Amino acid sequence: MEHQARILRDILTHLERQEAAGEEDQNGIGGEFAQKLKNQSIKYRVDKTFPTKSAEKTENIKKNRYKDIVPDHSRVKLSLITSKKDTDYVNASFIKGVSESRAYIATQGPLPHTVVDFLRMIWEFNVQVV
């Protein structure tokens, strides 16, 4: 029992040090998570795990705040058209919930030129909480 307590204390001490190190330190929890997330993003892009055809269209590239966060397989498609220059693209994805396959929408904060798309999405999908 004493051996298990010592192992647990060692683990907790290690985690406290990692947490204190912060995100800038590669050995910290935040740094480790950020690196794993970056590696996974690169792997998905290189392996073409998830298609990004819509996000990579010329007219849509400028609508992506971050070049490595682009939806396609689970993307929100807009059908509400407010002007001739509107498209069905918004950088947003549906997220599965417990009881629904489209329970939530994850999206980036709108850019100055994508605010209308963001508002179209909120209106069309009757978003209650932002």
Rank of each mutant, 00 (worst) to 15 (best):
A5F: 03
H73Q: 15
F125Y: 15
R65D: 09
K63W: 04
V90I: 15
D68V: 05
T114I: 06
S83E: 10
Q26E: 15
Q40W: 11
K85N: 14
E23V: 11
H73F: 12
S101L: 06
A5Y: 08
E56M: 10
F94Q: 07
F94I: 00
V90T: 07
V76N: 09
Y66I: 01
R17N: 13
S79N: 13
Q4P: 09
H3G: 02
Q26N: 06
L37H: 10
V46A: 01
K43C: 02
E19N: 15
R6T: 09
P71D: 07
F33T: 06
E23F: 11
T58F: 12
K38C: 03
K48T: 05
N60C: 02
R6F: 08
I81F: 14
Y104D: 08
T107V: 00
V115H: 09
V46C: 02
H3I: 01
K53W: 01
Q18L: 11
R65C: 05
K48A: 11
V129D: 01
D25P: 07
A34G: 06
F50P: 11
A103Y: 00
I42Q: 02
K57R: 15
D25M: 03
S101D: 15
K67W: 14
I29W: 11
K85Q: 14
L80F: 05
K96C: 11
A103D: 07
I7W: 03
M1W: 03
K96D: 12
T82D: 15
N91K: 03
Y44T: 00
T52A: 13
E56Q: 13
I122G: 04
T82A: 14
V76F: 03
Q18H: 01
